[in-house]
């Protein structure tokens, strides 16, 4: 005698794993400051480069970044893409722009939407400014900046941000 020839082909093993993540002091400081419409970065003690969100150490110089600096909420679009298909969980009229924004004084970029303009009006070098959620609605997380909008200032020349791409 033998077990049935017709085997059980699959078993369902749904893993359910509980986690309790800590942001760490650097990210906690950064996120809480957004509530007050402040964007914080950290400065490398060896190279002077400014990282935003702030890092404890610089990736390139392996040096501590112990100084916290406040950055303006203005900068330039370095690179960007135009989204033409709907993304689950994001209810925005198509097409829209997702951009890499180098804030003035920062050596790395953060990501954000660019709104209040046509997608075709966004270029590399377009000057933009953060549009914040109104007072009382900001929670201290990355959605506190709703999006960036063009400031209307002249476009920055490529040479001025090519090192930040």
């Amino acid at each position: 005698m033998e077990p049935p020839k017709e085997r059980v082909k699959f078993i369902q093993t749904d893993l359910v794993l509980p986690y309790h993540y800590y942001a760490g002091d650097y990210k906690a400081l950064y996120l809480r400051a957004l509530k007050d419409k402040k964007i914080l970065g950290s400065k490398c003690s060896a190279t002077g480069k400014v990282f935003v969100p702030p890092l404890m150490s610089s990736p390139d110089a392996h040096a501590p970044c112990e100084e916290i600096v406040e950055l303006p909420d203005k900068g330039i679009v370095t690179t960007f893409c135009v989204v033409n298909v709907p993304v689950y969980g994001r209810d925005i009229e198509l097409p829209y722009v997702v951009a890499s924004v180098a804030l003035d004084g920062a050596d790395v970029s953060i990501y954000g939407l660019v709104q209040e303009c046509k997608a075709e009006d966004v270029e590399m070098g377009t000057r933009v400014q953060a549009v914040w959620k109104p007072d009382g609605e900001r929670q201290g997380d990355h959605t506190d900046i709703k999006y960036f909008k063009p400031t209307g200032e002249p476009k920055a020349p490529l040479e001025s941000f090519i090192h930040r791409l």
């Binding site: 800590y22 942001a23 760490g24 002091d25 650097y26 990210k27 404890m56 150490s57 501590p64």
Partner: peptide, 9 residues
């Protein structure tokens, strides 16, 4: 207060 990389650095 620290993430894993922040503990390690």
């Amino acid at each position: 207060h620290r993430t894993a990389p922040e503990m390690l650095y």
